[in-house]
């Protein structure tokens, strides 16, 4: 019997088959294998991800190790410079503050809205749902322009209303804290409907009988919320928060339109600061370094949230 170096599964009685023919046979078998077919079917997606995600990411990492003119490697100097820069430390702080407060407020307001909608009978619910979704479907750059006018120091309609009730005008975009509040407000206004719609779907999926069982077990409305609704929605809440955390952390358009990072760089986020450093100031490698700083922060959050999600899904589904 000829030495069988191709496959251990070839049936006996094929010993007379010549070696080249056996090669093509094994190639055909390889092509027929399920894992091969699966790989081939996934290949277009793998190429897209490699081309649009993996390659730019690798390139960005390489870029961040170059000098300003991109002629020589400077190692980790760009990162070290950023860590020592007071402005960048403020950007990190502001990004965290912005993302955490905005996501928290969006989650709370979204949850509250979803609960309100859930109690409206199905027929009236649709028009309210539609109206409440409007902020989320307007392109944020445009809606932020609208907010910018409302915050404008000379023509602010919000200030006008405050004045009507006898309150003084507020320099919305002119002082660091008011500007931060303004940026968070617009982001919450834009993002809360997304939370609302996700939570509404989750609320609808909680079986009515669980509430009835809880009512008979002696639960008050608040206890039903704490012991039935929230635990049943935990996975949706976790995934929505993670998703929103990533998107909010990487937000660009709202800050760019509303404050452009000002006053005195106090409202800059990673993305706007990276744009300012990399494009406006022409230091591409350092801009790349700024945006790469986001990665470890988000990775840690994603790891913990997704671990909880998959554990609960295993136990409950």
């Amino acid at each position: 019997m000829a030495p069988d170096g191709v496959s251990g599964t070839i049936a006996r009685g094929e010993a007379d088959v010549t070696v080249p023919r056996r090669r093509t046979g094994s190639l055909a078998r390889l092509a027929r294998r399920r894992s091969t077919i699966a790989f081939l079917l996934a290949l277009p997606l793998i190429l897209i991800i490699a081309g649009l995600v993996a390659w730019p990411a690798t390139w960005a990492i390489y870029l961040s190790t170059l000098n300003r003119r991109m002629t020589a490697s400077v190692g980790l100097d760009n990162y070290l410079f950023l860590i020592e820069s007071e402005t960048f430390r403020m950007v990190v702080w502001q990004s965290c503050f912005f993302a955490i407060t905005a996501v928290l407020l969006k989650a709370l307001i979204g949850f509250w809205l979803a609960h309100m909608l859930h109690t409206i009978p199905a027929r009236g619910q649709r028009k309210w749902r539609g109206m409440l979704l409007i902020p989320w479907v307007i392109p944020p750059a445009l809606s932020t322009l609208g907010w910018w006018w409302m915050f404008d120091p000379s023509y602010s309609s919000i200030n006008w209303i405050l004045n009507v009730f006898g309150f003084p005008s507020i320099p919305w975009l002119g002082t660091p804290w008011w500007a931060r509040i303004a940026v968070v407000t617009v982001n919450v206004w834009y993002g809360a409907p997304f939370f609302m719609i996700m939570y509404l779907a989750a609320l609808k999926s909680v079986p009515e009988q669980l509430y009835e069982a809880a009512a008979i077990d002696g639960a008050t409305g608040l206890q039903k919320l704490l012991y039935v609704t929230l635990p049943m929605m935990r996975n949706i809440i976790a995934i929505t928060v993670l998703f929103s955390l990533i998107v909010t952390f990487a937000n660009y358009d709202i800050v760019r339109v509303l404050t452009n990072g000002g006053p005195r760089d106090t409202t800059h986020l990673f993305a706007t600061y990276a744009f300012q450093v990399g494009i406006l100031s022409g230091h591409l490698p350092r801009g790349a370094a700024v945006s790469l700083f986001m990665l470890p922060i988000l990775a840690v959050a994603a790891f913990f949230i997704l671990r909880g999600v998959s554990r609960r899904a295993r136990e409950m589904m």
């Binding site: 079986p207 069982a213 809880a214 039935v228 635990p231 049943m232 136990e315 409950m316």
Partner: peptide, 10 residues
Amino acid sequence: FQNYALYPHM
């Protein structure tokens, strides 16, 4: 209850 209505997370 007919569908037991057990709390799945407990």
